[in-house]
Design a protein around this nucleic acid. Structure first.
Length: 284
DNA sequence: TGTTATGTTGCCAT
DNA sequence: TATGGCAACATAAC
């Protein structure tokens, strides 16, 4: 679930709940590997006493800036959740870490599949990660021309290239499928073969899909919740994602959507509106 | 009850 | 070096 709009939704709900509060301790569940290679004691010792100064996002990463210049770098992967709760609230299902804050609050990290991580990172490590990632698709500098330049250098299928975080950062399976449908582009088109007009359509579609996701506070299928524990609403506004398997009708041409596998990822698309060759036909 | 799919990404082989 | 497949894990649905 957590792609750029979901992570941004967590950031927005988390920030007012933790910024300005100080870390006073930490508790661990059975999976201590959630913090990487540090032992629970090391992790706890290094963050205790630090005030949380800001909550930032880059791609699908969240960064909690600590006053000593270090960062707590969080990646939710598939099923990670970051929730603020009261100290005495019951342990969450799949809870691996509780960072204890002032005023009796906890920042809890839960993750059914144990892929997510809460890592303590230096500013240099954060800068290195930032350097490895492609541009933020909602940043003002991310123009259609910039997208076109990135795509011309990337062989491979369009969907796979868009999912590569080094090309554009923050896109995932949901929003790529949504954007490709909006742009009427087949996911298996060669990324280098788009016309300038198609690149402009894709650029607009990406930003529209992401902005809609944020406006709806993220897409919740099962596990995604914001830092206050609330589900998102964007699942009610998806055009194609998850709809190909059942062959639900295309909202544009009303013919059945199809499911395929592209780059190992389940993919929903409209075989009529998203053609591999040439311009798609008008609806009807 | 076994098989398959799931929002991500890093590793390994080619 | 770039790309594609798969594993990491737990669960739900078929």
């Amino acid at each position: 679930m957590p792609e750029l709009p979901e992570v941004e939704t967590v950031r927005r709900t988390l920030a007012p709940l933790v910024v300005g509060r100080m870390i006073v301790g930490a508790r661990f569940g059975v999976f201590a590997g959630v913090v990487g290679t540090l032992t629970p004691d090391e992790f706890t010792a290094r963050i205790t006493g630090q005030r949380i100064e800001a909550v930032g996002r880059r791609a699908k990463y969240l960064f909690l800036a600590l006053e000593n210049g270090a960062f707590l770098m969080v990646h939710l992967r598939m099923t990670g959740q970051l929730v603020v709760a009261d100290r005495h609230d019951s342990v969450l299902r799949f809870e691996h870490l509780a960072i204890e804050l002032t005023e009796g609050r906890d920042l809890r990290f839960a993750d059914q599949r144990k892929f997510g991580r809460v890592l303590l990172a230096t500013a240099a490590e954060v800068a290195a990660l930032n350097h490895r990632l492609g541009p933020e698709p909602l940043a003002p500098a991310f123009s259609a021309g910039a997208l076109g330049q990135l795509l011309t250098r990337r062989p491979g299928r369009l969907k796979s290239v868009l999912l590569d975080q080094r090309v554009v950062a923050g896109l995932g399976n949901i929003y790529v499928d949504e954007a490709l449908f909006r742009a009427r582009l087949h996911p298996e088109r060669a990324a280098t073969g788009l016309t300038p007009h198609e690149v402009r359509r894709l650029h607009h579609a990406l930003r529209t899909s992401l902005r809609q996701g944020i406006a709806n506070r993220g897409t919740t299928f099962s596990s995604f919740h914001d830092a206050a524990g609330d589900a998102g609403g964007n699942q009610h506004h998806l055009l194609v994602y998850g709809r190909g398997r059942a062959g639900l009708p295309c909202v544009r041409c009303h013919r059945p959507l199809v499911r395929s596998v592209v780059g190992g990822r389940g993919t929903s698309s409209c075989p009529r509106c998203q053609r591999i060759e040439g311009e798609p036909s008008p609806p009807g």
